[in-house]
Write a protein that binds this DNA or RNA. Structure first.
Lengths: 297, 297
DNA sequence: ATGAATTACGGACCCCGTAACGATA
DNA sequence: TATCGTTACGGGGTCCGTAATTCAT
């Protein structure tokens, strides 16, 4: 059995032409190369070199052997890469979601079920999610409704209720619930990356203007220091964090961690319309069912 | 760098399923396999096995690795074979000839010029020789005339003069030379494998009957013990071997070594027609000139 | 209790680098 | 004389087999 490193030496030699230069390039001694090439010849059973007293060069067979060795070493690297890529692909899961909140829930579940899994997530509109699932851009997608396609499996993930988060002096602050049409026309502050909620609220409140805020921190500051109305969700605790699930803060410490800093200057008023209470579903191809049903249970 | 034998062990293991059986099949200890598979895992950087306390099996990545290793080992064998085949092809030369005599001459020349060359020879008709040279069935062919195709190189090899070999009581035994037409109609004994001579004599002596003899020994016996006319050539000595080129007997001891055993019961009469004095040419593709011109000088 | 995998230990072998040598330009 | 390739020698590392251990059927 030929040692792969000896083949590599042959390849380098075929490029340099002398053992000395090869030795320098490979940081080994010349004698190692001499012996290696001798061994190579004996293992091929073919005369690969023409030797004069102080020079060494390749025969035609040797040139062929060097060329073959070069592609062989590439095949070796390919084999390694294939296996490694396969392993990495097996251990990573790409998730596409229609909203940020259920991402946290799913990531947490996957993390406890398969701690060595690496996860990548994206927020996309629902049609893109379905396309992405189809072409394996995503292995899992999160939809606010169960899919109709019977090639897909799905599991209920969690629910989310949207609230108006109103200043205590707001005219609706005392209400037990509100319909969106009642707030239509009122300007509101809105976080940018909220997925399908964005489309929903702009559709249901066509006369309102929405001030889009990309960053979480200034968004929180505006809530604390203004009376402008915003949305919030039951996923964000209204009360201090000790009464809420602490794990959410662990897995996504940079996420909006609730509005408790407002010092109770605001109240949450549930939105009565049924579209604002959604149930999220994890959706995946049936062929991957064996791999993913553990994540969703 | 992964050792090829370790990959082989992986392949065998993927077929047997246990280290024990693999060890038996490879005539090595189980501990060697344990260590080998551990090393393999570390070199792939991928978890290839699922281990319980007393069993070992492949993960999906491991199964893939075993499959890839199998094709990789085949590529290794292919590389070896390619180089060896190339070398063997470089060192063997196929010769096609129109007649047996010049084969001896050429083989002898090649043997002294390149002692490690292996040679295969065939007698074929001239059109087949040209086809065979074209499609590389032959690297060298021997023709009784120089080729016209200017894609071909050629070198004069040797000459051959054909004789009638007549019993001393034959009516032409005293002649200094003969034309073939003078012998036309007379029955003759003929060796089978004499190449283009066969076609030539049957064409020039259309009224003769030729008794074909395949074997050399009975042919010699018939010459010694009958008065039937035969052909001979200046390549076969008419006199005892010490006056003739001894090398012919060295290189082709099984060939007809002359008719000297006849005890001078016969005489050689040269055939006067120019077609019966031929000059042989070694012919080869110009692209192989560098390789073959040494043989023909 | 048998068989499987892993680990510890000891020895053989291999492989490498240094150095000396031969030869060439 | 400087450079290149080969060979001799010594040390270190690696690899293997034996044997002991643990666990499961």
């Amino acid at each position: 059995m030929i040692d792969l490193k000896t083949l590599e030496q042959l390849v380098i030699f075929s490029h340099t032409g002398t053992l000395c230069e090869t030795a320098k390039k490979l940081h080994i001694s010349q004698s190692t190369l001499t012996r290696g090439m001798q061994k190579l010849e004996s293992e091929f059973g073919v005369c690969l070199f023409i030797r004069t007293k102080n020079s060494l060069s390749l025969t035609e067979a040797g040139t062929l052997a060097a060329a073959e060795a070069e592609v062989f070493l590439r095949q070796y690297a390919g084999m390694l890469r294939h296996v490694q890529d396969f392993d990495r692909k097996k251990r990573t899961v790409s998730i596409g979601s229609c909203a940020p909140v259920p991402i946290s829930v799913l990531v947490q579940r996957i993390t406890v079920a398969c701690p060595d899994t690496s996860i990548s997530t994206e927020l996309k509109k629902i049609p893109q999610l379905l396309y992405g699932l189809e072409d394996d851009t995503y292995q899992l997608i999160i939809l606010p409704f169960p899919p109709e396609n019977d090639q897909l499996s799905f599991q209920k993930l969690c629910e989310e209720q949207l609230f108006f988060y109103l200043h205590k002096n707001h005219r609706f602050a005392g209400r037990k619930s509100l319909h969106v049409r009642e707030m239509n026309g009122e300007n509101m502050l809105l976080l940018r990356d909220i997925g399908f909620w964005h489309d929903l609220v702009t559709e249901k409140m066509p006369d309102s203007r929405f001030f889009i805020q990309a960053e979480t921190y200034p968004f929180q500051e505006l809530i604390a220091n203004s009376t402008i109305s915003v949305f919030t969700t039951d996923a964000y605790p209204d009360t201090p964090p000790d009464t809420a699930s602490p794990s959410l803060n662990e897995t996504k410490p940079e996420a909006p961690s609730g509005h408790e800093n407002s010092g109770m200057e605001r109240v949450r008023v549930p939105i009565a319309d049924p579209e604002f209470h959604v149930t999220y579903y994890v959706v995946y191809k049936k062929e991957n069912g064996k791999r993913f049903h553990a994540f969703s249970s």
